[in-house]
Design a protein around this nucleic acid. Structure first.
Lengths: 322, 322
DNA sequence: CATATATATACTCAGATTGAGTATAAGTAA
DNA sequence: TTACTTATACTCAATCTGAGTATATATATG
């Protein structure tokens, strides 16, 4: 009786699991060669209300099954349901709506946490996330690829007189003297997609001015809409860093202030002023010294700190507003 | 073949449509007496990928059909999928996942925009939103209901030694000298729900220490999880006011600064410092004078202003950080 | 008309926050 | 011993923020 005349709908749960190794933000991917062309995917699976009481439990089960990995912090990002946007595992299946999640994986060596069976079965591994978004890493200054390849191609796309395109471009890519907003990762990816400059656009049958050479410039592609979910995850994470102590979910138990700063810089994709960063951390009482110092690679030894979990109960919004 | 063995899933789209009349925030509700016990509901309907290309188009169609109303700004809030949480239109139906949306309805007389047929058919009307959340309106100071009824009952609920409960309570309700965070609307509602202090908890078959008298104190109930979606909408709207010029989507074309301030105060549920509010608005160049002045109810006439739409293109995050 | 009252608008001021810098301390490598 | 590297402490001006006073221009009242 119930809706038997309508299309069947399946809900896909996808997780952008972020890890960290040597000051590099990583993202957990799987590559089930049996399932397709070996493209990178996020861990995902169909939500079944009979097996999973909540989305989050279902998600944790999928990550556990596909990577043998326990994840810590989990939060919902967005639910993507566009028809036409390629989200179907295969063409004969139901319409798939995908609920994207951000998850954080603790510990200094995330790849060691991946179980051996999972690696064999699903090819689970952690990849540096800037491989998928090279233009988002401003730590060493403005990325060359922007002015050399992306912006010229985007200008051409927007040169049809459509003022909306030009405005979106201006805001997302900080034209005309605007300052680069590290949180607009999704906006920028969407523009590249609509302009037909990323591989996924071609895969979805969109008009694509694709020169294969360009795709090499616009980062590694993912299957389905997984790169869009990843862009959403990075946007959210970068935004949230500023008003919640989320970084510490990625750090080890003890760390130096420089390690903490490098981590935030890696996630935010930009350089921070060292002295002011320290002042901010200490003023907010986010950390406390352990009393020990770290062995160095060279230079004065640094004090080790740990996260003061109590801050979560003391103030409403303690972040690293940088 | 595809998933025929699993539970069928239906996606419900629900809209929290916000309007404004005489400095009172309103929410669009329907009361289809044929469908139930006459409880308030948000406009909603099942997403059908064959009829609607995107969620947003589907949502606009439902609101149009059930209220005869055109909505302006629309944004996705959250997707609720818990089993057990009462989200089923009827018990024989599929498992329902509901995608909640925030929508804004422009104009000074929202109820006039509701079509006559819609009113007859679905009982569409705009209700003041503080009817559903009396403890969220701090404009005239701390609401009495908090100390007189809600907090005592919540304390009793948290008195079982569960430290997590006590911590959540502390943060959500600003105990021990914390400052009230106007954005934690959802947190507070969730606590009341879990404590069995709102009618929906009883309806969902949860353990409920319900004295009917208490339900009168915890605001008007809604059907399904619609009040939860409304709480999410208010949280989001209050948060976004601070960094995006969303208020203007609710204002008429011309307004005085006092009207603008009263509107923000009504949405944020708290009183603002008049002089600083004006300074903020003018410093951010959010408005420009029309050159005319408003007829008054008494006192010096006020200049009329209009929203400077250009700011959307000038700065990345122009809001009313109050 | 004079006066009280209400509202709008202009200006002040101290304290906190922010962005950017200099100075000094404490290690390692040549 | 000297050069170099990294950590940590302190300074300073510009800006932002919270809270206030002062003045302008209308309506209502006796």
């Amino acid at each position: 009786m119930a809706r038997s005349d309508a299309t069947n709908i399946a809900i896909g749960l996808s997780a952008a699991v972020v890890g960290l190794k040597d000051q590099t933000p990583l993202i957990l991917t799987i590559r089930a060669d049996g399932a397709g062309d070996g493209q990178d995917m996020l861990p995902f699976g169909p939500f079944d209300p009979l097996r999973h009481r909540t989305f989050e439990l279902g998600l944790r089960a999928f990550v556990e099954a596909q990577a043998g990995l326990q994840i810590g912090h989990v939060e919902q990002l967005y639910t993507f349901g566009d028809r036409g946007r390629h989200a179907q595992p295969d063409d004969k299946a139901d319409h798939v709506v995908s609920v994207g999640y951000l998850a954080l994986s603790r510990g200094a060596a995330p790849e060691d946490a991946i179980s051996a069976e999972a690696l064999k079965l699903s090819g689970a591994s952690f990849q540096p996330w800037y491989v998928y978004f090279p233009w988002e890493d401003w730590r060493a200054g403005r990325p060359d690829v922007l002015d050399q390849h992306l912006l010229p191609a985007l200008f051409e796309w927007a040169s049809d007189g459509d003022v909306t395109k030009a405005e979106r471009l201006k805001l997302a890519f900080a034209l005309d003297g605007l300052v680069w907003d590290d949180e607009r990762v999704l906006d920028r990816y969407e523009l590249l997609y609509e302009a037909g400059l990323v591989n996924e656009a071609a895969a979805d049958g969109r008009d694509s001015r694709l020169v294969t050479a360009m795709f090499a410039r616009t980062g590694r592609a993912m299957r389905y809409d997984h790169r869009r979910i990843l862009a959403t995850a990075i946007s959210r994470l970068r935004a949230k860093l500023k008003y919640r102590p989320l970084v510490f979910e990625l750090m080890g138990d003890e760390f130096t202030l420089t390690e903490l700063q490098k981590t935030v810089e890696a996630l935010a994709g930009r350089h921070l002023h060292k002295q002011n960063f320290r002042r901010l951390v200490e003023a907010n009482a986010l950390v406390e010294p352990t009393g020990t110092t770290s062995v160095q690679t060279g230079g004065r030894p640094a004090q080790l700190f740990r996260f003061r979990r109590e801050v979560l109960l003391e103030r409403p919004a303690p972040g690293l507003r940088v």
